[in-house]
Design a protein around this nucleic acid. Sequence first.
DNA 1: ATCCTCCCCTAC
DNA 2: TAAGGTAGGGGAGGAT
Length: 833
Amino acid sequence: MNRNRRRRNEDDNGWAEWGGYFEAKKSKLQEQFRETAATEVEKISDIFKGVAIIVNGLTNPSAEELKKLMAEHGGVFHIYQHSSTTHIVASNLPNVKISKLGSVPIVKPSWITDSITLGKLLDYRRYLLYTNQSTSQPKLDFPVVNRTAKTASDPDFLGEFYNNSRLHLIATLGAEFKQLVAELRDRPERHFPGREKLLEIPTRLNCFVPAPVIMHIDMDCFFVSVGLRTRPELRGQPVAVTHARRAQINANKEREEAVTMNLDRQPEMIEVQMIDGKSSMSEVASCSYEARKCGVKNGMFLGAAAKLCPDIKTIPYDFEGYKEVSMTLYKTIASYTLDIEAVSCDEMYVDITEIFRIFNLSVEDWARHIRAEIMSVTGCPCSTGFGANRLQARLATKKAKPAGSYYLRPDDVEAYMAEIALADLPGVGRATLQKLKGLGLETCGDVQVASLSVLQRELGSKAGETLLEQARGVDKKPLNFHHERKSVSAEINYGIRFKSLDECHNFLESLSNEVWNRLDEVKMRARCVSLKLMVRAADAPVETAKFLGHGICDSFSKSTTTNYVITDPKSIYKEAKSLYEKLHVDFAELRGMGIQLTKLEKIAPINPTLNKFLQKTPTKREQIPVVAVPKPTVTSSKPIPKEKSTRGRPKGGKKAPTSSKNSLSNFFKSKKENAKLQHKQVEIDFEVLKELPQDIRDEVIREYNLDVDLAKPKPQPAAEDKILVPTETKKRSHFEGLQWCQLRPILYAWMKSEKEPANVDVEMLGEHFKQLALDRQIDMLKIAFNFLHRTFGQLDCRWHRAYHAIVDLTQQGMLARYGSMLFVNKDFDCCFC
DNA sequence: ATCCTCCCCTAC
DNA sequence: TAAGGTAGGGGAGGAT
């Protein structure tokens, strides 16, 4: 991506390449495995003689593994498609790409694994990824036995499911647009070609718009509108986007029973009550306003929707179309401003204040202009709402829909709000609404006069407070243009019916790979893995009403904070598997599984100077001070001090391990040897020495013939030095297995990394930071290690580079003077200076 | 008092 | 048949 971006066209604000965004993602995958060194493999068979594959997109097994399998079994692996390529292997390939791939058959990866399992080349036609189920897909000339990955027991399931999941698409597209807005804003240049068009709008006098103005823009029934672009004959009719084509399915006794049994259990699900054993339980992803008039809602089962609206027409999904239209939408808005908070693929907030300030437009002029432009470039209608904050803008959109615009003027807010139904407030969902009903509250007007304490008692302190504010049209949350990820997860609660523990483990492994790929994609690393399970409720029927749905479930989750930074999918799988064992759930009862990663860290150093330095190959000079210290054998290491570390200790009443002593002792031995080697004098920091356990300290003093009188303290250290050394009141156990380090330079480096060095008052920041640490009662050592870890942890532990980066900064006058420093990583590699 | 874990809720 | 994902806010209750 980065490389592509540098090539960008200066005139288009980066858009030319944004169009190629998804393209770029795919080619990156290719780069990844091209870089993988060819591994020498032992030939096992000749199953794939004459077969030459390329891999397109994510697969399971991965491209790398397929490459190895092909080599082992006499096949050929191409990185790019070639005239001699015989098959394309893919788990999910957007329809739009198929036409470009020509006549080479596209097969599922299980063709390869199954062939190997059975020891012979199977007929690939049974493994074709595409069948002629949709007009946009290529027609196939031969009969196809469509082997669909129905349940999670199938290795192709994950990709196939995500390829067809609307919710997955919505979630991932939303996240991608958030990230893209952030990236665009990070570019130094600002270029808004769209604004020129505004000059053509005749300016009027007296169209003062009080600042700030927030615009909320939302496509009207997005999926339907995209689908109707090519189906004009359905305009004005009740239309729904669903997987199913018909609202009735063939009668099936078992299913009728299952439906009835589930109905008994879920009387609150109104739409479920409207269905019977013959109704389709395919969900309506989006429905037209004509369908909504009959009471049809998004998320409803098609069977239920058809009961309300017998004329309803169904149209299939068009995932590529959604991507394309949302891209165009964002592109259009961003040609006017980058003050955008992406909400989802079809919705965003835009701070429009600046545009009004510059162009002297009325809200109506602007709305008419932008809505017309969006209509013309996407072929889809949208609605816009304007207000002084995001809440007002959003409620205005509600009134504007469909295909309209509304400005909620500051003077009208109070009266307007009183009429708003509580259900229309963002954040008020099913559960909250029920609670409020219990209090006899239905409109914002009711809430306006309710007491805060009552609301808080019912909804919790935070939600109570926000609700009261919302009811008055107040929204203090500013738009967030720079979104930072706090978690990455992958979850599937459909098609989970394991027949063996192996199947369950395999699926968990696929999920681990998936979630790892997503983490890597956003260039982050994690330190916490959570596993979420959906388990059939004890009294729920084994057969669910919805085909392969999760039915009525209990959900459980468990997490583990690792004492290392996760740097591969195998670690995720290992942790997830162990969490699964701890939850004691029978694989046969599972109905859903998910893995979530939290405690995320950015993969790259933030400081550009440090970054640049770290990329350099170290010179000989730079390598000298690195001292390797043998790993302590007594205990496992903990890279970042954790209050809970003592809890994780062996419970058998063992004494706390003495790793600290051992490694310190070792450390000084190595230090001495190293000094001899270099014929250099050894410097030992007084404060470090003071903190050593008595016996080691004595040893060090003896070893080095030090002239130190610990009883007579050395000159009073500067104020900030005092806090650098953990005091005796701090529990030593926090730092078991860790070494001391001089903190000031590190903290300065940290602070510098977030603000550019120029014009930063180091002393002031130091004070500020100290206060922060004291206020929050965080150990300075913990902060320092967090920093070190976050910045350098993934760089193959090149601590010497970290050190020299800091020295470098110091020499440039960018850091304060530093004293002796000791850096330690989780493997007890040390560098000292 | 504050943090952490395991939930629940909400939005698209 | 059908494709019930994902991220963030926040609260209860236990641990420290």
